[in-house]
Design a protein around this nucleic acid. Structure first.
Length: 308
DNA sequence: AGTGATAAGATGGTCCCGCC
DNA sequence: GGCGGGACCATCTTATCACT
């Protein structure tokens, strides 16, 4: 709830908060007038510092003074919230408006691993401008990141050397504009959780590449069922066949390059083609083709994310 | 280097038959 | 009836070649 929402609830009038140039900062755009003190009419305008508060209603002088008092109290409280440490922000419900601009250009990574590795991560980032916060399932790292994949690879490597297995690293986006540190942190952890639900127990996942799975995961099951209805039953035969699923996954990892995938699977290229043909016979989809590979992967992801 | 087509080899399952 | 050997077939894997 913003200041204008709160005041609207209290007074029953529509409220708009403008800067001195008439730009709406929050609330409803009900009109602006540059006044020095207080102007009371059908609309009430109150100057508070570098702000003009527009109220769609007639207030008494006393009420206007109370509003001014409430404004200063509210903004001080808001300022206090914004000054809270990162841990408070990540773990509490701090409104989006209050966070805009804070941690500008920083990105959040989430390292899903046992908390005992917190000290190791701390020592890795000792001397760097980075903040670390732990929760029940892992550790947030907030810093300016140039190349997420490179940085995550090196963290993964370090943690492996320390005996950590099954580490998943997720990343949100860089904080800028309306995209806050909280958004970045939620995205980072969500990337990890989605990857885990998709069956990965290790790896590096950026939210930019997880969008499809996020939509599936959050999506309305009734609507998803509407699109699945009457088809895709045969996909279960592939879904249950570890060998076929691994074959398809490796092909996707190799960007549909048959030769590369067969090398990585230690298979003859024709063996891989044979399996791809088998998938086609079962599902009707030729996963060598981009469009059909996308459909295949989407349906399999729905099975993984929604039918566990 | 990558792809498509084809042939050949390897493997595993099923069936039939003869022997105990 | 139970067991082992051989034939047959389907499935899977590999090798090769021509072509882009």
């Amino acid at each position: 709830m913003s200041f204008c929402d709160d005041l609207h609830l209290a007074l029953g009038y529509e409220i708009g908060l403008y800067d001195i140039n008439g730009n709406l900062k929050e609330g409803k755009d009900i009109g602006f007038k540059d006044v020095d003190g207080i102007e009371i009419g059908d609309f009430t305008f109150i100057r508070i510092g570098d702000n003009i508060l527009s109220i769609k209603g007639k207030l008494s002088q006393d009420a206007c003074n109370l509003v001014k008092l409430y404004f200063s109290f509210y903004k001080n409280k808001e300022a206090a919230d914004v000054l809270q440490p990162l841990e408070y922000i990540l773990k509490n419900d701090v409104s989006k408006e209050k966070l805009i601009g804070k941690f500008l250009n920083k990105t959040t990574m989430y390292i899903m691993c046992p908390i005992k590795y917190f000290n190791i991560l701390e020592s890795i980032y000792d001397g760097y401008e980075a903040e670390l916060v732990k929760d029940d399932e892992g550790i947030y790292i907030v810093k300016e990141i140039e190349n997420f994949e490179e940085e995550a690879e090196s963290i993964l490597e370090e943690l492996k050397q320390e005996g950590a297995n099954n580490v998943i690293i997720g990343s949100g986006r860089q904080v800028k504009g309306d995209y806050t540190i909280k958004n970045s942190a939620i995205h980072a952890k969500t990337s990890c959780l989605l990857a885990k639900n998709l069956g990965y127990n290790e790896g590096i996942f950026h939210i930019d590449k997880m969008i499809l799975y996020g939509i599936i995961s959050e999506g309305d099951m009734a609507k998803i069922d509407f699109y699945l209805n009457g088809g895709y039953e045969n996909f279960y035969d592939v879904y249950r066949d570890k060998e076929l699923i691994n074959t398809a996954e490796e092909l996707f990892r190799c960007h549909l390059n048959i030769s590369e995938a067969s090398r990585r699977l230690y298979l003859h290229r024709n063996t891989l083609l044979y399996r791809i043909e088998k998938i086609k016979a079962i599902t009707g989809l030729d996963i060598k083709k981009f469009e059909e590979a996308v459909v295949f992967r989407t349906v399999i992801s729905i099975f993984k994310l929604k039918r566990k």
